[in-house]
Nucleic acid binder design. Structure first.
Length: 483
DNA sequence: TGAAATGTTGGGGCG
DNA sequence: ACGCCCCAACATTTC
């Protein structure tokens, strides 16, 4: 890599933001600021950059987080420069226009993007300074005694923990010198990231994309729910989870910040150590997923366990559509799918229930579910989404065995005992008493009438009988083992 | 981070 | 008082 000093000190530097929309603990931004050069703060809309185009919910979030970040930069007398097109071509043009002498960036964790980043300096002819900001450990860097990637979570996590030194987090830069003339920028509105005709995003307004929203979410979580996290996180009827996943995905907050603040809360005695440890474990799964993707770049398309390549998936467009729309006749499944559609998010426990239902009860390929989540989740993340779908399917690394099949009714009874979650998202059933809420097909006719539930009308009968579907899935698994 | 089937145990009803 | 049966509760195995 060429020395920065090779360029005149007055030449501007480009800070290329991709998914690191934060001022605090942003290593590329801090390093660029320390050079005292004028900074061009760039975002490029490049569909090819991360290996696959982002989904509709992600476009909504991107729109808002760019707006928030641009506004935050205003306090420094700065603005984002927005361009679209092939990243390398855009950067070349901007360097030619401005005489920029260096590019600063934080790497993206996806293998495709990482490979492109590594070739970037050669393609641009200026130094590229790359930093790690998305994960606690660089994907691929945690290896077992034989120098190979871990395939089991627990030893991976042990190794990760052993090398974690809680760092001093980088403060927000004090100044971000602006160039004499700001390069031309496209208009965010022209990118049409916000949905129009129809604008389906009303239910997304519970989110506050951006760094301030990320910190608010972390503070709110550490201020109470964290203490109940080990069990509360399984309760979709309560505010028991951190809801940090989209903020982490978009780099609005650093994973270091999450664990440093959580541990500080534990040290102060504001949070139970055991609860904070559980949170750490979940951050650890995020790390594990990114390591898996780095070690197995085919994770988004191929079964990690090759024997599942022969699984006899069913072609069932109607079943798939009923699942997507939340019309399966299983209240817990339908509540989850409707929460997703309305808000761009689904509670983690319910994600497992709906994924198990698609894969095992309907025997539809996990890739169909992964694709739907990719389009509809505001936290859609290639490593987490594909690793978690394979985890449920039983084909992943350290996955739940295939025969672990969720019963959607009993999951509802266990984790939404008062029916608060189901009644919120499946209002057709709101007046059905708790006793039958999670299995309305078992309710006596008179009870259904009293509650205003008619199966021919608003709410469907189950599209498959769970008991039989379970037997069918287990038979399919047996057929696999005979190969 | 499951559920269902199967096995075991022990209390209570009852002849 | 005793053995038998039933069955709920719990444990283990199986998928």
């Amino acid at each position: 890599m060429a020395q920065l000093g090779a360029q005149p000190a007055s030449s501007p530097a480009i800070v290329w933001f991709r998914r690191d929309f934060r001022l605090a603990d942003n290593p590329a931004l801090s390093a660029a600021a320390e050079t005292d050069r004028p900074l061009i703060l760039l975002y490029i809309r490049d569909e090819a950059l991360e290996g696959r185009p982002i989904g509709a919910a992600s476009r909504w979030w991107l729109d808002k987080t760019l707006k928030a970040f641009d506004a935050a930069l205003g306090e420094f007398g700065q603005r984002l420069v927005l361009r679209h097109g092939d990243s390398v071509e855009v950067l070349k043009a901007l360097i030619a226009e401005t005489g920029a002498g260096a590019v600063f960036l934080n790497t993206l964790p996806e293998p495709a993007a990482r490979a492109r980043d590594e070739r970037l300096a050669d393609a641009l002819g200026v130094p590229v300074r790359a930093f790690e900001a998305a994960t606690l450990a660089q994907p691929g860097s945690v290896l077992n005694g034989s120098g190979l990637p871990y395939k089991v979570f627990t030893p991976f996590y042990r190794a990760l923990r052993a090398r974690l030194d809680l760092p001093d987090l980088r403060a927000r830069p004090r100044r971000l010198a602006a160039p004499a003339a700001r390069p031309e920028s496209e208009r965010l509105e022209d990118w049409r990231l916000h949905p129009k005709r129809p604008d389906w995003s009303e239910g997304f307004n519970l989110w506050t994309p951006g760094e301030a929203g990320a910190f608010a979410a972390l503070d709110a979580f550490l201020d109470g729910p964290v203490n109940d996290y080990p069990t509360g996180r399984d309760r979709p009827d309560k505010a028991g989870t951190s809801r940090l996943s989209p903020h982490l995905h978009w780099g609005e907050i650093s994973p270091w910040r999450v664990i440093v603040d959580a541990q500080a809360a534990a040290h102060r005695g504001d949070a139970r150590t055991g609860a904070v440890e559980k949170l750490m474990t979940e951050v650890g799964w995020r790390e594990f997923n990114h390591h898996l993707l780095a070690a197995f770049p085919a994770l988004p398309t191929k079964s990690f366990d090759p024997k599942y390549a022969a699984f006899p998936w069913r072609d069932d467009p109607q079943g798939l559509e009923a699942w997507r729309r939340g019309l399966t006749g299983y209240p817990m499944v339908d509540a989850g799918m409707r929460e997703l559609w309305a808000t761009g998010f689904m509670h983690n426990r319910v994600r497992m229930v709906v994924a198990s239902f698609l894969i095992k009860d309907l025997m539809i390929d996990w890739r169909e579910g992964e694709a739907w989540f990719w389009d509809t989740l505001v936290d859609a993340d290639l490593a987490n989404n594909t690793a978690n779908w394979q985890w449920v399917a039983g084909s992943g690394a350290d996955a739940a065995p295939f025969f672990r099949i969720f019963n959607p009714a009993s999951q509802g009874e266990r984790f939404d005992p008062d029916g608060v979650y189901v009644r919120r998202w499946v209002p057709e059933l709101a007046r059905l008493p708790d006793r039958w809420l999670h299995a309305p097909w078992t309710a006596p006719r008179a009870v259904l009438e009293e509650a205003g539930v008619s199966f021919g009308g608003a709410y469907p009968q189950p599209i498959v009988a769970h008991r039989e579907a379970r037997a069918r899935a287990l038979a399919a698994l047996r057929s696999l083992k005979q190969l």
